[in-house]
Write a protein that binds this DNA or RNA. Structure first.
Lengths: 162, 162
DNA sequence: CCGATAACCGACTCCTCAGGTAGGATTTGT
DNA sequence: ACAAATCCTACCTGAGGAGTCGGTTATCGG
């Protein structure tokens, strides 16, 4: 399994926020309570709280405390690349433990210390890394929102005014 | 982390077999004892035994039992796609638990039962899936062997005749 | 000011699985 | 017969995923 449910739940949460924001600028949309999202997606509220905290720390959503509070996207969905979302939730995307990224975005392997021979598998993991990164960086939240609306056009959003 | 050390160790094992086979047809190459590989790659032998069993079950390597036994590639390195190796070691490559592949290679999500609305995240995971699959399917063991030899030209193989 | 609503936070549980060990049984060359 | 190897099953351990719970703080409406 490439990703855990953290990424899955977190992405669904973001999509839900994007759907409810609609065309309104994020800063003007009504904040959405986590409980509403949890119900709509049938996910455990207390678990979502942990996930949304990571998204907030990554400045992908903003929160409003107190009654009628909730969460909003920190910026328009078109400007949110999914790689930022997934990395906020799962941590850095390295195909293997021994991999890390230096400044410059180069992929390095901690096995090749002291200029010794390169990790035999580096070529492969670099390619995989590239494939995943490209897919995630090339997808915006707005695309997912649109996709989800196309596939559930008749479905009303729970909690909307009748 | 996308993959565990199972993939990492297993791939290194395969590369090692490929290096030692050299230009000889796999069926003629001397079988390589696991202990030799373990030593060369400084990996625990008893753990490698588990991994190589999976590779054998996937018919990627063949074994010779008894004294002077060992393992050989089941076919030339040019005909071994790394996706087969990684899948043998890690199991099917799905980005999420809810994903599975039907006959035809279509990606399906177990959440979209009864023709209901598609998983909001399906578009994203499908793209990631594609990125990984393309990278793995488009890389052969032969490429990795060549790559590793280019980067360790002066390094002799342990266990070779002097 | 009071109470309801919600975000916020830390601690704790449960369980799976990666990563590795251990010990034996079987096969085969010398 | 003996040694070298594969083969096989069982077991152990720690980390982390998945989720729960209880409590604190902030904010609104009345």
């Amino acid at each position: 399994m490439l990703f855990s449910t953290k990424a899955e739940y977190g992405v669904r949460l973001m999509v839900e926020l994007g759907r409810r924001a609609g065309d309104a600028a994020p800063s003007e949309a009504e904040p959405v309570a986590l409980g509403t999202v949890a119900e709509a997606e049938t996910l455990p509220l207390s678990y979502l709280e942990h996930l949304v905290a990571k998204l907030r720390d990554a400045e992908l959503v903003t929160s409003v405390r107190g009654a009628h509070g909730g969460y909003r996207l920190a910026r328009p969905a078109t400007e949110i690349a999914m790689i930022d979302v997934v990395e906020a939730l799962e941590g850095a995307i390295a195909p293997m433990e021994c991999f890390y990224i230096d400044r410059e975005g180069r992929v390095l392997c901690s096995h090749e210390v002291d200029g010794d021979r390169a990790c035999a598998t580096k070529l492969l993991w670099t390619r995989v890394q590239g494939g995943v990164t490209r897919a995630l960086a090339g997808t915006t939240l707005a695309e997912l929102v649109e996709f989800s609306e196309q596939h559930a056009p008749a479905k009303a959003l729970a909690g909307e005014p009748a």
